[in-house]
Design a protein around this nucleic acid. Structure first.
Lengths: 339, 339
DNA sequence: TTGTAGGCGTTATCAG
DNA sequence: CTGATAACGCCTACAA
């Protein structure tokens, strides 16, 4: 059998102890920053550590202490999707930001080729102290069961509220949709349609609900609805249908920016102008929103905050603090030129 | 002290052994698929495992076996950069693809907020059996030292060739630049300039060298050079200067697509047409290349293959096989409308 | 303040 | 084929 190509043996705590002329316990104390070690001894130990270039072995440490100081971010989506959806980039940044001042390490598990079984084993195999599960639009909580054996924080509420066995950080989708629609109303629009998302995804239903709420309160009709799947193409199709069935519409709330962008082309094809003939507002505030022509008014999705809040929540749970089981992050409207 | 919020204790190998009425050793054999276990005993053990929902503890396993079955992909760049550079998306896919049939788990370490010291400790702390280091254009090998204690495979050659203490998978940048330039020559272009990348990054120097090689072979001048930093803006500036100093140029090879895109605008501003007045070819074949107007002829960067090859190489090293210290991946020309 | 000793859950080496 | 019995490297009462 081979050695694995590596030359030197990693120095152990024992070796440090020998070199420093103290016991392993003392070295351990120094390494873990225990206050009850005399300064001079600590100094000697630190020198030995530096001289040997010692780094504690995680496996041993975690076996003994029953904690790994690592948390996993599992993303139940395809690799390409993860990398092409700006939402994730920001979310990861948020997580990293929140974890920076802590001792926790983040390890990302993208479920493309990895397979959920491998992921499950990873999570349950004592690799991490907790997990963050983030899927964008889908309210996928297929990892709900692992929360029975491991602290888990989900991004986005589950589809079935009763399933909420664990902690969730979500964006206030309903309220966001409501202020978006209210903005349209304030602009004097009378016939406001919506391109809703799939009704089997929480954001899809929540955003549609928010739209209806605003309309109802204003005494306006809420019957102009078409559904898309959050893709630009589906947005175009939905918009076309909306224009056919409700020729009098003068505004539309799209459940996400990508569908809104799709709607742009359908509106142009119909010979109508934005925002002159029809005003449009999206949701997410992704990179397409600001570069669209005209720039899209949209609801800002606090992805950075979401990542950070998820991480903070998880750490609290791990450390044994009491934490609210659901955190709702506020959304805000970004007004551009499409309204 | 708190329990960490988790309810049940994880079942141990010992518990499985008890339930199955065998020794721990036997359970371990079954778990690891050892052939020397009688079928009936194995069956009983498997049932016990299923009944208890047992998952081996990684820390213990890795402590005892001195291997973690995990590898790290460290990306020494900012989070936003990682997520906005299509190169990484594909690279990660390649890694995942190559790892799928193996028992290795991938954990991504993005060096945004994480900090290199934390990363170093992670790598040296026995968390992984090996590491993949990938930076896009920068030949950053600041992790070279860890290769002394851990198998490491780098993506992209180091800036200083003598520093190559370890394994590297690289794209044949020089050859790619050469065929790109040759293509321009074949198209009958006579005055071929280049927008080169930073000369402190390997791809920057290799691509410039390839360009010069082709020109020299054809007996054409290779003095029209301007430098950029791989960003679109820098490409525009370089192109403007090129047009000023060499008004007779009829073609340009840009060291990457983003700079090529930047050059597009400078060429347009100068009132010249692409490819009529000046032909242009880029490098990378990223998503901007195909959507540019006109679509950009470019050198395809085999990022998927690169990721896969890096992973395969690392696994081989870990398993103790002999592996060539440098693998050069071939590049190919994608001809579109800019030439 | 420091050292001693036992154990964390697995693997691996030997006997049987 | 199966079962004791050491490690593996570190943490943590408990003792000194």
């Amino acid at each position: 059998m081979s050695t694995g190509g590596v030359t030197g043996h990693a120095p152990t705590l024992e070796m440090v102890a020998a070199r420093a002329g103290v016991s392993r316990a003392t070295v351990s104390r120094v390494v873990n920053g225990s206050p009850k070690v005399s300064p001079d001894v600590a100094e000697v130990v630190r020198e030995a550590i530096a001289a040997l270039n010692y780094v504690p072995n995680r496996a041993a440490r975690s076996l003994a202490s029953r904690r790994t100081q690592a948390i996993a971010l599992v993303v139940p989506e395809s690799t390409s999707r993860v990398f092409n959806d700006p939402f994730f980039a920001t979310l990861v940044q948020g997580v990293g930001l929140a974890l920076a001042p802590t001792e926790y390490t983040l390890s990302m598990l993208i479920e493309s080729e990895t397979g959920s079984e491998k992921t499950r084993r990873y999570l349950l195999g004592g690799n991490v102290d907790g997990a963050l599960v983030a899927s964008h639009h889908t309210g996928d909580h297929s990892y709900a069961h692992v929360s029975q054996s491991l602290p888990v924080v989900f991004g986005g509420r589950p589809l079935d509220p009763t399933e909420s066995v664990t902690h969730t950080v979500d964006v206030d989708n309903a309220h966001g949709a409501e202020i978006a629609t209210q903005h349209l109303i304030d602009r004097g629009r009378q016939r406001i349609a919506t391109i809703a998302g799939p009704q089997d995804m929480p954001p899809g239903v929540d955003r549609k609900r928010g739209w209806a709420t605003a309309l109802e309160r204003a005494g306006l009709p809420d019957d102009a609805v078409e559904y898309g799947d959050f893709s630009p193409a589906s947005g175009a199709i939905a918009m076309r249908r909306l224009l056919e069935r409700h020729p009098d519409l003068d505004a539309v709330f799209a459940a996400n920016d990508q569908m809104a962008i799709g709607a742009y082309s359908a509106i142009a094809d119909a010979g109508r102008s934005i925002p002159g003939d029809v005003a449009i507002v999206g949701f997410d505030d992704d990179r397409y929103a600001s570069t669209a022509m005209p720039p899209l008014t949209t609801v800002h999705q606090p992805s950075l905050e979401m990542g950070a809040e998820m991480a903070r929540t998880l750490v609290r749970i791990i450390e044994g603090d009491e934490v609210a089981s659901t955190t709702l992050l506020p959304t805000s409207l970004v007004i551009r030129q499409s309204t």
